[in-house]
Amino acid sequence: MMAWLSPYGHLQDLGYETICVHPYPASFYNRHNIYPQIGFSRFIDIREFSPGDKDGQYTGDIAIANKVRDIISSVIEKPLFIFCITMENHGPLHLESPRDGDEDLFYATGIPDSCRDLTVYMRHLMNADHMAGMIRDTLGRGPRGGIFAWYGDHVPIMPSVYRQMGTPESLTDGFIWRTQASADTCSIARSARITSMGVECLGAEIIRLLPSGRVADPEIRVSAASAGIP
């Protein structure tokens, strides 16, 4: 595959610095060979993170937010595109145990012991929310602003939880947010294909986030935002 056939290669042609951040070995799925061919000028993998960046089994989302902040502050001469593949709440979740106080933090009443994976996932999801806020703040403080898009590729793998509570729809959430808000922005949540998210970021009107926005594969229901992320 040639870089000019991909949207990332097109961004390179437009003068963007294109960077992928994935805190896992770059050789996994042969990404270290494939990503340069589809238009990424740099791949930041597990080697640029430390063991202290872990939260659970993998590099935590807070470390990702800090890495994004550092990249944005270091690339000032060119427009910048960063693609992050996070790991913290990837699982398998059953290899971790809930921490003291987690159940009191996330639930009004106790839950069955078979749902311990859900408690682990909730802690990581809380950190993902913190990551989103940190990236939002980084973009908001910068002189050039930016667009922040986020989507999930699949629901969490928690078979013991689903046996107890039922299997969820294979849907995940997504949103698009930008620092520049127009005076006539409004709220919307709608369905679209995941492949259209880049078009939404670059060409469509970006509007206020709705918490009900959902994403499906290959369908994606995108919430767009021009105000703060809760």
Rank of each mutant, 00 (worst) to 15 (best):
S187C: 07
S187M: 08
S187V: 09
I188H: 07
I188M: 13
A189H: 06
A189P: 06
R190A: 11
R190D: 10
I194T: 10
I194G: 06
I194Q: 06
T195C: 10
T195F: 08
T195A: 11
S196C: 06
S196P: 01
S196Q: 15
S196G: 05
M197L: 15
M197W: 03
M197Y: 02
G198W: 05
G198S: 05
V199C: 07
V199S: 15
E200Y: 13
E200G: 08
C201F: 03
C201H: 03
C201I: 08
C201P: 05
L202W: 10
L202N: 04
L202A: 12
L202F: 14
L202V: 08
G203A: 09
G203L: 07
G203N: 15
A204D: 12
E205Q: 13
I206L: 01
I206E: 00
I206D: 01
I207S: 10
I207L: 09
R208Y: 02
R208W: 01
R208A: 04
L210E: 03
L210R: 03
L210Q: 06
P211L: 01
P211Q: 00
P211W: 00
S212Q: 05
S212H: 05
S212M: 00
S212K: 08
G213P: 01
G213T: 02
G213D: 01
G213C: 03
R214K: 06
R214A: 03
V215F: 06
V215K: 09
V215W: 05
A216N: 11
A216G: 14
D217L: 12
